[in-house]
Simulated assay, not measured.
Amino acid sequence: MNNVWFITGSSRGLGRSLTEAVLASGGQVAATARNPEQLAPLVAQYGSQILPLALDVNNSTQIKEAVAAAVARFGRLDVVVNNAGFGITGAAEAYTEEQVRTQLETNLYAPIAMTRAVLPYLRKQRSGRILQISSIGGRVGSAGITIYQAAKFGLSGFTEALAKEVAPLGIYVTSVEPGGFRTDWAGASMSYAPTLEGYDLVNSRAEFFASGKFVPMGDPDKAAQVMLALVEHPAPPVHLVLGSEAVAFLKHADATRQAEFEQWLPVSVSTDHDEAENFLETELGKTYIKK
């Protein structure tokens, strides 16, 4: 199907691979970037299939204007991809206030704002797909990228709740959670906190990223093809992990969490009021956890 896509951060990295794949498949794309001139080769090749739009995802006015322009041009939106973002590495206490703020604004607040801007259109259509480009770092914590992961954990959680909220409207939402992919995430898009003494693991990770020796396993062109197929699936997942590296990390993290949960389960349930039943054994509890 020749869907109409709205893709943020489409000028490079995974966003660029996805934009090219959609256009090559015959789809139409409202492609946003801070510098839409970078999309000129795609305009030259695909003409009216692509609508390049200047967009700073931290500007709420520009978000609304870009969404309205896309709908005015193509008449609808079928797939919205919140892809724009960047990474940052360092110890939690070392980040500047500006680094913390911009990280949360770009990687969490912006996709929420974009999602809220497109939902009125998708709700009226009673259809649509939203892909939130999160990260395996939104499911598994790692030293050195705490603020980045705070944003991504937030985005993955927002997606999981939103998917339940909008399913009755015919809207599907998926948190796409890649491991390392061969984009410029650890290169030109990576920023760093000041180095602090004592954080040897964090500092070595930052040095490794900055050295240019980090070679991720993931192929962004393959990820783009997966997402093309994903939006046609009648029952898409709420969480989609991409890459064997990410799969390995999540399996280990889930096993560790489960073991910890079971160890502390007696303490967890001990805080119920003496007059309360065990929620998990009540009909309300059995019904609630299925929703």
Rank of each mutant, 00 (worst) to 15 (best):
T96H: 07
D221P: 03
T174S: 15
W5F: 01
Y109P: 02
Q125C: 02
E275W: 15
R182D: 13
V202M: 05
Q28H: 15
S48W: 12
A110W: 03
V247E: 13
P120Q: 06
R34E: 05
A54C: 06
G170K: 00
G27S: 06
P41D: 08
L119D: 14
S211Q: 12
L240Q: 11
A113G: 02
R12E: 13
Q103E: 10
Y95L: 13
T61F: 07
Y199G: 00
I88D: 07
N35P: 00
S142H: 12
Q103D: 07
G87C: 05
F74P: 04
F214G: 07
A167W: 02
L162T: 00
A21V: 03
V81M: 10
R126S: 05
G13M: 03
K164C: 11
L201D: 10
D272K: 01
E207D: 14
S60Q: 15
L119V: 09
T287P: 04
N82E: 14
A30H: 15
R73L: 08
S10I: 02
S244Y: 05
V267G: 11
T287V: 06
A161S: 15
A24G: 03
L108H: 05
G15Q: 13
Q28W: 15
S142A: 14
R101V: 01
F86Q: 07
T195F: 08
P168K: 02
E105C: 00
A24V: 01
E37T: 13
G285D: 07
L122T: 00
M114Q: 04
G9A: 12
V226T: 14
E197F: 05
A54M: 10
M217Q: 07
F279L: 06
W5D: 00
V269S: 11
T159P: 08
I88R: 08
D78F: 06
N82Y: 11
T146L: 09
A255I: 00
P41F: 13
D56C: 04
G15F: 15
L131H: 15
I112G: 04
L122A: 02
V140G: 09
R182W: 06
S156K: 05
V238Y: 06
L155C: 12
G285C: 05
N82G: 08
A110P: 03
W185N: 05
L265Q: 14
L131R: 15
V81E: 10
Q258F: 00
E245H: 03
D221R: 09
T115H: 10
A91K: 03
V100R: 00
A113K: 14
M190Q: 14
I289W: 13
E262L: 01
A66C: 06
E65K: 15
F74T: 08
P168L: 02
L155I: 01
L280H: 11
F153K: 06
F6D: 11
H273P: 04
S10T: 06
A229Q: 09
Q263S: 07
A117Q: 01
N3D: 08
S191C: 10
Y288S: 10
L104H: 08
F158L: 11
A186K: 10
Q132C: 12
A246H: 10
V202G: 12
V4F: 07
G138F: 14
I63V: 12
A186Q: 15
G137A: 15
G144M: 13
G85T: 12
S17E: 07
G13L: 03
L42S: 10
L155H: 09
Q258T: 02
E37Q: 14
G198K: 03
L39Q: 13
S142N: 12
S211E: 09
A167N: 02
A54S: 14
E277K: 05
